[in-house]
Structures are given as C-alpha cells and as structure tokens.
Amino acid sequence: MPDPRPPGGRLSVQKTYKLFLAGAFPRSESGRSYPVSDARGALLAHAALASRKDARDAVVAARRAQPGWAAASAYNRGQVLYRVAELLEDRHAQFAEAVAAGEGLDGAGAEAVVAETVDRWVWYAGWADKIAQVAGSSNPVAGPWFNFSVPEPVGVVAALAPQRSSLLGLAGVVAPLLAAGNAVVVVASEERPLPAVTLSEVLATSDVPPGVVNVLTGRTRELAPVLAAHRDVDGLDLAGAGPELAAELERASAGNLKRVLTPRGGEEDWWAMPSTRRMLTFVETKTAWHPVGV
C-alpha cells in the first residue's frame, strides 16, 4: 500500500504574500497577483499585484496616520524604531533566506545583508531625537527678535524602493523617512518584493502605528505615476526608478510641487554609511520670529 502522506511526511503551509495597508494585510483590491522567482528563475511565490486604487488607498491611510506619528515625541519615535530593529534581528534567519533566494547570495552574504540592515535601522532610530538639533538653529537677526528654525516632517512620502537591494536598500529608504516623522507609501522592489512583505510583518508587530508605513508590491511602472501625480503626496523618493522613469515622475510631481529625491548615477551603494540627506530632503524648515522686550 502506497504511503498517503506527502514527501517528507508533512505538507508545509505556504504564506500568501499580501499588501500592507493601514496596518492590515489585504490582497490587492483588483484580485491580481504575479509570480515572483528566485535569482535562478524558479518560482518562489505569488505576490499581490497592487492596483492604482491600492496606491490611492495607501495614500489615504498614510495621510490619516501621519499627524499622530509626527506628534509622538521624538524620543518615543526613536524607541519605536529601535523596537523594529529588535524584531528584525529576531527574524534574522527568515530575512536571510528571503534575501539569499531573491538576490542570489550565498548564506554568509545574505547574513551580512541582514546584519547591516539591522544596524542601519538602529542608526536611524537614534536619529529620531537628534535631527531637530542638527538641522535646526537659532538665528542671530539684526534686531530685537528671537528667531529660530526647526525641521518638520514634510508629511506623506511615496518611495520607490531600490530594485536590486531588496532589504538593505529598502530599509535605507524607509527608516530615514520614519525617523524624520513622515508617513510612507513604499513600492517594493518589483522582482524581489518578498523581503518587503516580511518587513511589513515586522512593522505590524512592532509599535509603528497602522498606516505610518504602507507596502505595495507590484509593477513600479504602473504604481509610480499615480503616486507622483497624487495631490496628497508631499514627497517622492525615486530610489527605485531608472533615469527615464525618474524624469517622467519628476515632471508629474510638478502638479503640487513635491519634494523629490532623485538618485544620482545609478542605484546607490546601500552598504556605504549614509549621510543625513535622506532625512533632510523630506523635512521642511520652519522659522519663527518673536519680539524680545518687556
């Protein structure tokens, strides 16, 4: 009599990779999905193929969540971000497997990527309560006024995650936006979206409020123009757009004059220690005056 059990004695339970919107894990409202392969072309999973409507929903969720996130004390935001790093570390093995499969790295290479990602996230967590001191100033105006400048988050930022560096690059884009107090709609690497989905599971179980980060998987070409032209998106990080798409998106961003960060000359080296640029591009400087007198 043949053995009725599956090979190995037990059938594993596979995960459905879904979107992360407003703190929940829906499928695309369109019902679509697309196959995701590993670096050698073998099928890994089907990811949700987000629609333009999903992108708009993500902006609504981000807009709703942003004031609360910005209003949290910088100290509190720093702790929440540090908590994310703790949970990233916790899932070290899972991320390493996903990165190895998606980016075609060997075990040690993938381990190094995850370790650097955790450390990068910790680095940005520590910035949350320092950026205002570093980017702010009191200004010696020529008269009896107290005058100071403070950075404030720009609001809702849409980010195209890097296409190649699917975890370290993703963290390098999302973490600075969060440290600066922005809410994020991030479009994951099109061909390597699975680490982003797993990151969204980390975010969902940390204390990042629902809607502060929204993760879309799908076609960058389809989703990016909606976000670039969206009137309720304040900033645009084009890390994952090639030069041609970036030019088109910059043009579309003119409608409400978004703050745009465009990569200079190919995909950034995500291993290099970052500067404050990714945070400072997406803050506004507010300057206040008040008379001094009795």
């Binding site: 200004n139 105006v141 020529a142 008269g143 507010k286 005056w289």
Partner: peptide, 19 residues
Amino acid sequence: AGVVWANTFNRFDPASPFG
C-alpha cells in the same frame, strides 16, 4: 508655513531662513 511671525509680521534678515 515656512515662516511664522508671532506678534510681528513681514520681518526679514539674511540670517533667517525664508521659504
């Protein structure tokens, strides 16, 4: 807003960021 004047208005200074 990029500049907020409290109990004053339309003050400018080269040391004061404007935008």
